[in-house]
């Protein structure tokens, strides 16, 4: 691999171009493979496509760039603590709308850390909610008959469902 290459260009599934640094791409095996292909290929003009939409890919690349220094060189505990705080903020932003897209992208790109973070964030959205709030947040239609609902309440002693 040529050491002069510091960043590569990739296409999102919507056809937009994005730049990702070599060190950041190393966080994902599939991205890393693409990178090697690009660098070794004679036809360097070819831009690989990542099957992730633009809105999601921006976030994924942002995550990679932030985590790359630590993943590549190791880091102190205070750095790890700082990174944890950053993760929480990263997931707090207007990202909610694309949370599940990020989760799927992290899976597709073999990014364990981001995948776990997305799962935890999704679960946190469910915590402390009532059944009706859950239905509202996640756009779920109640398909139980009233008998079934009554039976469920009996089965779950100690749970509040209001």
């Amino acid at each position: 691999m040529s050491s002069s290459v510091e960043a590569i260009t990739v296409l999102s599934s919507d056809g937009d171009e994005f730049k990702i640094t070599v060190s950041a791409a190393k966080l994902s095996k599939p991205l890393n493979w693409m990178l090697e292909d690009v660098c070794f290929s004679d036809d360097c003009d070819e831009v690989p496509t990542i099957e992730v939409n633009s809105k999601t890919l921006v976030k994924v690349i942002e995550y990679c760039e932030k985590h790359a220094p630590r993943a590549n060189s190791g880091a102190s505990d205070s750095d790890a603590e700082e990174l944890k705080k950053w993760d929480i903020e990263f997931m707090k932003m207007d990202v909610k709308d694309i949370l599940f897209h990020i989760l799927m992208a992290a899976n597709y790109l073999h990014m364990e850390g981001l995948y776990d973070l997305a799962c935890q964030t999704a679960a946190d959205l469910m915590k402390g909610m009532t059944v009706s709030q859950i239905r509202k947040i996640f756009h779920i239609k109640n398909d139980f008959s009233s008998e079934e609902q009554e039976q469920l309440r009996r089965q779950h002693p100690g749970c509040s469902f209001d």
């Binding site: 469910m126 059944v131 859950i134 239905r135 779920i140 309440r153």
Partner: peptide, 11 residues
């Protein structure tokens, strides 16, 4: 407890 609440949302 959270699983029980979730499980009441839909089938």
């Amino acid at each position: 407890q959270e699983l029980c609440i979730m499980s009441e949302a839909c089938s």
